[in-house]
């Protein structure tokens, strides 16, 4: 089965692809594929928000879970916003409270962690949802990069 996304010799849509990172699915919308774009947007944002709902914002952590975050960042600025919320609200103790955790080095003072931090499956599954959202948005971005415009190629380069 062939479809428009498989035409590999057309021009690349750099601007819609970039916009697809800023807001998932926006690249397809700019190219005139509104229904396709909004459905991709719903899927990616639905996955990401479900992940944060299940695992809390702690499941997006640029410093402690950097490898997970590299993929989560594919979902766009929403991943950085979740990481900011984690750093600014939870890790500072503005929401919840800070409690000492067992130190990895007994000669150092015990590190403080938020009382909202868990090691339950909820956190793991939430991390996986956000990770999957980021990877799926990379697929959506690549699709926007190659998909022929439905509006006379206004965004192609």
């Amino acid at each position: 089965m062939s479809h428009p996304a498989e035409s590999v010799d057309g021009p690349l849509n750099w601007f819609p692809a970039l916009m697809g990172w800023v807001l998932p699915g926006l690249g397809q919308v700019l190219l005139g594929h509104r229904q396709r774009g909004f459905r991709a947007m719903g899927g990616v944002l639905g996955l990401f928000l479900s992940g944060v709902l299940v695992g809390g914002v702690d499941c997006v952590d640029r410093r402690e879970d950097a490898l997970w975050f590299y993929a989560q960042a594919g979902a766009g600025p929403i991943a950085f916003a979740a990481d900011w919320a984690n750093s600014a609200l939870l890790k500072t103790g503005k929401v919840g409270r800070l409690i000492p955790s067992p130190p990895s080095n007994p000669r150092l003072p015990p590190p403080q962690v938020t009382s909202f931090k868990t090691v339950t499956m909820s956190n793991e599954v939430g991390t996986l949802f956000c990770f999957t959202a980021g990877l799926m948005n990379v697929v959506v971005i690549l699709d926007a990069l190659r998909r022929p415009s439905a509006t006379q190629g206004a965004w192609t380069a």
Partner: peptide, 11 residues
Amino acid sequence: GVAVVHRAVQD
């Protein structure tokens, strides 16, 4: 969620 995105870009 994966199916929603996959079908949106693939179909």
